[in-house]
Amino acid sequence: MTPADLSRTVLHAVHRAVAENALRAPMPARVRVERTRPGGSGDYACAVALQLAGDAGLPALEVARILRERVAAEPGIGRVEITGPGFLSFTLDAPGDSDRAVLDAVREQGSAYGHGGALRDEALRFHHAREVRAAVTADAVRRLVVSQGARVRISCGEAGEMGAAGEAEWGLLGVTVDAYGTPPVTSPAGPSAPLIPVRPVPAGATARELLERLGPDATRWGLLRPASHDRAPLGDELLVQGEANPLFLVRYAYARTRALTRGAAALGFTAASDAAPAPYESPARPLLDLLADHPRVLLAAAHHRAPDRVARQLEAIAHAFFDFHDSCPPLPSGDEKPSAAHRSRLALAEAAGTVLAGGLSLLGISAPAHL
C-alpha cells in the first residue's frame, strides 16, 4: 500500500462514517498522510481527526476512534493506533499478510466475525405493527444491532394478527417481543430512548399462511431479502432447489464448504492459511475482498436497520466462492497429492463457509451442512 493508497483509504473511512451518521462534518477534499517521525509509532500518521473535530462537535480522540474502527479492517492495514491528542498511526502489512490476517480473524472469531462494539453506548427501542414482515424485520434488526454492541427492546402494536396461535407461529419464525402496545416515552427513571418505528411494506399474508407454504427459513429470507420499502416476493420460487434461487445458492455454498472439509479429512489434510508464500491465485481475490469487507457491511446494515444488505452480501460471497472453487479446486483430483496450495485454498473455502453461516444466523436462517 502506497501513501496515496493509504490517503484514499482514510478518506473512504471518513465518507463511510459520515454516511452512517457516526460523524457529522464536512468532507475534506483530501487526507494527508506522512511518514512517522523517528521515535513515533507505526509507518505513517495523519491528523485528520484533529482536522474534523471542531466541525463534528466531538473531541479529536472520539473522531479518531470512529475512524480507526473503519480503517483497521482494510486490506493492507496491519494496525491502527491513536496517539497524542488524536493522531492516527498506521502500521502496514507485509504483502500477503492482510489476506492471512482476514482468514485468521474468521477462524478465531467464528460466526461472530464482523461483530463489534461500535454501538455499545446505544440503548434502542424499536416498535412495529402486529404484522409478520414488520415483526421479522424488527427481529433481524435486533440481531444486527446487538451484534454491534447495542442494547435493544422491541414493542409491538395491538392491531393485526391476534391470539395465542399467532404468537406460536411468530415463535416458529424466531420472533420475540418484549412488550405489547405503545410503551410510554418516560419511565420512573426519567425519559426513555425514543421509539424507532420499523415499517416495511406489509407481507400481504399471515405468519400461518407463509409457514404452511414456505417454512420458516424461506419465509424469513423472502421477507428480509428485499429492502423494507419494496414489496416482498413470497412465491414458490423461494423453495426452488437451484442456483437461480439466492437462498438455495447461499445455503448450498455453505454446505459445499463443509463437504470440502470432510473431503480433505478423508484425504488426510487440513486447511492452512500460510501454507505457501503466495497462497491465493487471482480468482480468489474477489472472495478475499468480500470477506475482508464483511465487518463493514454488518456495521452499515446495523446503522441503517437494513438486513437486506446482509442478504445481498451473502449472495455475493456465495457467487465469489463458486467462481473460486471452480477455478482453484481446494481438493486434489485423480492421483494428485494434497499440496500447500490445496491447504491454502481449503482455508479460504472454510472461511467463506464460516462467514455465510454467521450471516445466515443474523438473519435468523439455518445453515444446513448437507443439502
Rank of each mutant, 00 (worst) to 15 (best):
A56T: 02
V250A: 06
V355M: 04
L288T: 08
V63H: 02
A19R: 11
T36S: 14
A255Q: 00
P295D: 02
A352P: 12
A301S: 07
G174N: 01
H304E: 14
A4H: 10
R309E: 06
A168N: 13
L234V: 02
S41R: 14
G222M: 09
A64T: 12
Q109C: 08
A232T: 02
M1S: 04
R220Y: 04
I154K: 03
V201C: 08
L119T: 03
R143E: 01
Q51D: 12
G358E: 00
F321M: 05
D55S: 14
P233G: 07
A101H: 10
A72H: 15
D293C: 13
R142K: 10
D99N: 13
S327E: 15
G242K: 08
P329C: 00
L260T: 12
L363C: 03
P188Q: 05
A253H: 09
S228V: 06
V102K: 00
N21W: 14
H294A: 08
V136I: 12
S192M: 11
L260N: 13
P246Y: 05
A129M: 06
R345N: 06
A193W: 14
G114A: 05
P368H: 11
R37D: 01
R256M: 15
A271V: 03
A207L: 15
S228F: 13
E237I: 12
L249N: 09
R35M: 13
V177R: 02
A218P: 01
P368C: 08
A349E: 08
G235D: 05
R130K: 15
A138N: 04
L144A: 01
A94R: 10
L61D: 15
V198T: 02
S7R: 11
E74L: 13
G76A: 09
P216G: 10
V80P: 03
V297W: 04
L331W: 11
A352M: 12
H294T: 07
S147K: 01
T137H: 03
S155K: 04
P279N: 04
S147V: 12
G42Q: 00
C328I: 12
L124F: 02
A271D: 09
Q51E: 15
P3K: 01
G78T: 12
V250T: 07
A349S: 08
L239R: 12
S147N: 02
F269H: 03
A218M: 05
Q241P: 15
R8V: 11
R130G: 00
N245D: 14
H229L: 15
